[in-house]
């Protein structure tokens, strides 16, 4: 088997002090290096919570999470911030770029945060990344002058700058029209192929999910389905997606 990049062991997440709401139940999961994984599930299934835990933005109530052999539970807030800066890239639904900055400045931000003023080499790398996402002409344009799809591509270039092991994307095509969405998805898959960067994409869009290497469906805070659509074929995959049977149903029936 490939190198395991992310490993979750019995992760539980409970919100609230007075009224406790459990969002994740004993989620255990291993994600190998280089996988393109789609995380799906209805609203309230806990997929965003899981993404935040994977992104070192939130801590589990119990259970352990290892990314790149680093136990995130052992890091304090500042160490978590540094970890995010070094190992993780984020792409969000509402691209979350800084409107005060140009494309290239936005792309340079993660380096700036982690290591200070970028040198020539990093600058060239950022330029290369912007060209890579097809925005060679927009390098010095202000972010608010770009279209939604272009902005999302800047966000992807930004996520790539520190050469992260893992890129987390929350509904990356959610705010885009179909054509731009497809382009963004193509780009992510190309990068996945080129750099062996692991992608975890949260989406509610079945078509997006079906393009992934692996689909995990969360329902009510548990992993309901976990399968590989490319191996199953599209028809079988859709069948699986449409069925209401979950992994734990099989177990309880047996």
């Amino acid at each position: 088997m490939d190198n395991i990049l992310v490993s979750l062991d019995s992760v539980n997440k409970v919100y609230g002090d007075e009224v406790k709401t459990q969002v994740l139940f004993d989620v255990s999961l291993k994600i190998p290096q280089g996988q393109f994984l789609a995380l799906i599930g209805p609203s309230g299934s806990g997929k965003s919570t899981l993404l935040n835990i994977l992104g070192a933005l939130d801590r589990p109530s119990s259970g352990t999470i290892l990314i790149n052999q680093q136990n995130l539970g052992q890091l304090n807030e500042n160490q978590l911030a540094d970890f995010r800066n070094k190992f993780l890239g984020f792409v969000f639904q509402f691209h979350y770029l800084l409107p005060e900055f140009t494309s290239i400045e936005n792309v340079l931000l993660p380096y700036w945060i982690g290591k200070g003023k970028p040198n020539r080499q990093i600058f060239n790398e950022a330029q290369r990344l912007i060209e890579r996402v097809g925005l060679a002409n927009q390098i010095n344009k202000r972010i608010n002058l770009l279209s939604g799809g272009q902005q999302q591509r800047v966000a992807i270039a930004r996520a790539l700058l520190n050469r992260p092991q893992l890129i987390l994307a929350d509904e990356p095509t959610g705010a885009l029209d179909t054509k731009s969405g497809d382009q963004v998805l193509d780009l992510m898959q190309e990068i996945n192929g080129e750099n062996n960067t692991t992608f975890i994409v949260v989406t509610h869009d079945r078509n997006v999910a079906l393009r992934a290497e692996r689909i995990i469906e969360l329902i009510d805070g548990r992993i309901c389905k976990d399968f590989f659509p490319q191996e199953m074929g599209e028809k079988k995959s859709i069948e699986i997606l449409e069925s209401h049977a979950c992994a734990w149903d099989d177990q309880s029936q047996k």
């Binding site: 933005l57 807030e77 931000l109 993660p110 945060i113």
Partner: peptide, 16 residues
């Protein structure tokens, strides 16, 4: 707050 949030997600420390 949106910008600060995104800067923090990208690894900006609380003090910064």
């Amino acid at each position: 707050s949106r910008e600060i949030g995104i800067l923090k997600a990208m690894g900006t420390r609380t003090n910064s």
